[in-house]
Design a protein around this nucleic acid. Structure first.
Lengths: 223, 223
DNA sequence: TAGTATAGTGTTTATAATACACTTTGTCAA
DNA sequence: TTGACAAAGTGTATTATAAACACTATACTA
């Protein structure tokens, strides 16, 4: 066994019922047995960091097909009681497509927890969560990652709820819709969806075509 | 020797004569002997990543007292021909204070190169440089890191030259000064400095006091 | 066919960004 | 001493973007 090991930890978010959630796994082994932690594990010898993150996410939770990007590398000498472990953390977004996350191969307990009110976490995972939340808020306002938290077809109200859940404040419906339209990255479809007893909402899809131009001049999504 | 090692590499920038420069070290050993690379080296057993970055910077270049932040972790299995080496890269800014960077303890050749026209680099260091440049441009526009590239006392023209060197375009003097003043983070001093034969320029200093308020609402430095 | 609950839509005002040119001032040389 | 030099320093008008704000439309249900 090496004296210095490298692990990956994945912070994956979704929005459900207007609430921002994060996926946690209950630890079955010491240290921190019984506490919640992010899905993760050691990097294999011939595996890239991205591949390791994706593999761990699949193995422990059954979640695939997500947006994934590297977050930060946590390397304090005593962050893991078992010895020197450097953790490359990842940031992921679950599109809310149908396949629900569930216990993976090692049958650990898996749960979507309220990201802004998480339970007590193992290791330095609370610091990792805070950093991921910061990154999420930032990316939401300045890029189009918001769409990664929705299925291919969505209503504008659903999109607005994603923004509100993450930013933690209400947005004005008219201003929101005007800016989305101005950005030119959503296309209205000829389909509608009925949620309650009231008027059905038009479905939309994301189209990055026009966005390419915009990326040059900085980025944008100023809500 | 472990099969998996962790290194740090530091990309440190400065601005001289209106030119953005990056610090490079000429490799004295294989692999990539004779090529230029960033200062860096392996992380010690009981050392945090930040500490390792700072130590390597000092050892190889004599540069201390810099702004330092983690950039990205590069971990492709074959990025280093010697075996599996994961590199945690760092991003640093040199304030242009007087102590010139020079060869450090191991007497390697050290040089400030044009950041936008670097020589051929070792390993995947060109990719790291591109990423660091992106981060630098972004931070310059949205935070106050620009001031980290200047000594405590500076003229507004010097500050503007820092922005122009990094953004790669000319800025309007009046608009630039208005925005700096509006941000409220520079204080005019009762000192002047003469550069050529013409009217001397007033010196200014950076004051983060008022900036604290601003950080809440996002950040800002929109030039 | 009246009630319900969300969908959907414009205008006005305030703030921020951009474009643009002349006067000031300390030195140096004639 | 004074005129040339070269960068320092300063203001306004226009355009674009952001924010505040309230009513009508519609599909279903009872």
């Amino acid at each position: 066994m090496n004296e210095l090991r490298v692990a990956v930890d994945v912070v994956i978010f979704r929005v459900r019922q207007g609430l921002l959630q994060v996926l946690l796994v209950k630890r079955g082994l010491a240290p921190f047995e019984g506490r919640w932690a992010f899905p993760g594990g050691f990097v294999l010898k011939d595996e890239s960091l991205d591949a390791a993150a994706l593999r761990e996410l699949r193995e422990e939770t059954g979640v695939g097909d997500v947006y994934l990007e590297q977050l930060y590398t946590f390397g304090e000498p005593r962050r893991d009681p078992r010895g020197r472990v450097i953790s490359v953390s990842y940031f992921a977004l679950f599109s809310g497509g149908e396949p629900e996350a569930k216990a993976g191969s090692d049958a650990a307990e898996v749960e979507w927890a309220a990201a802004y009110k998480p339970p007590l976490l193992a290791f330095d995972h609370r610091a990792i969560l805070d950093y991921a939340l910061q990154r999420l808020r930032w990316k939401l306002e300045w890029t189009t990652v918001g769409f990664k938290l929705l299925p291919k077809k969505f209503t504008l109200t659903e999109l607005q709820k994603v923004y509100e859940a993450i930013l933690g404040r209400q947005l004005d419906k008219r201003n929101f819709r005007r800016k989305v339209a101005l950005l030119g990255v959503v296309e209205p479809l000829d389909e509608h969806r009925q949620e309650g007893i009231q008027r059905p909402a038009r479905l939309h899809s994301f189209s990055a075509r026009k966005f390419e131009r915009l990326k040059d001049r900085g980025l944008l999504f100023p809500f």
